[in-house]
């Protein structure tokens, strides 16, 4: 699928051949830390204290490829006008930049679930936060092992 797209095919080939490490060296030096991820989360959710629960993070324990790893986040919520999920934030602790994506939901979303594919530079913890309409924040996190994306990281 991605093979035809310029640039990605080159990276795939490089990574497969193991020479990818040279190309990946630069971003590796500028990787985010859990602290930077915390700072970003503060910016995204403000002063609220996230509690663990309500959020389900569906992601494999071991990534097949760091280039496009499927991830799904769902939140227990009736998604009614009075009680719904306003935002879902996905944050990666070990990527060059900690922000992955922020989703803004409405009662029209029907269901508090999103899925997409993300990049993972190395083995790291991925976190998902859900901001509810009452202002409470819930979270879940999971470690994911990455072998290809991070040059054996």
């Amino acid at each position: 699928m991605a093979k035809k797209v310029e640039g990605w095919s080159r990276r795939d080939v490089l990574a497969a051949a193991g020479i990818g490490c040279v190309a990946m060296a630069a971003p590796k030096m500028a990787q985010a830390t859990p602290q930077e991820a915390d700072d970003l989360v503060k910016k995204l959710i403000g002063g609220a204290a996230p509690k663990e629960g309500k959020v389900q993070l569906k992601i494999k324990d071991v990534a097949e490829s760091g280039a496009a790893e499927p991830i799904a986040v769902s939140v227990d919520s009736p998604m009614s006008a009075a009680d719904h999920v306003k935002a879902i934030h996905v944050v990666a602790e070990g990527n060059p930049a900690p922000g992955v994506s922020s989703w803004f939901l409405t009662p029209k979303s029907g269901k508090a679930e999103v899925a997409f594919r993300m990049r993972l530079a190395k083995t790291q913890v991925v976190r998902a936060y859900a901001v509810m309409s009452d202002g409470s924040v819930w979270m879940a996190k999971q470690e994911i092992k990455v072998t290809i994306g991070g040059c054996g990281g």
């Binding site: 409405t106 029209k108 899925a115 997409f116």
Partner: peptide, 29 residues
């Protein structure tokens, strides 16, 4: 958007994969 009303939106960063493939939901009204 559904008839110009926003259903779901996303702010994406560099960690989104190439050829982004996403799934989301909408309430049929």
């Amino acid at each position: 958007t559904w008839n110009n009303d926003i259903v779901t939106s996303g702010d994406w960063h560099t960690a989104m994969s190439a050829n982004p493939f996403v799934t989301c939901y909408a309430l049929a009204t």
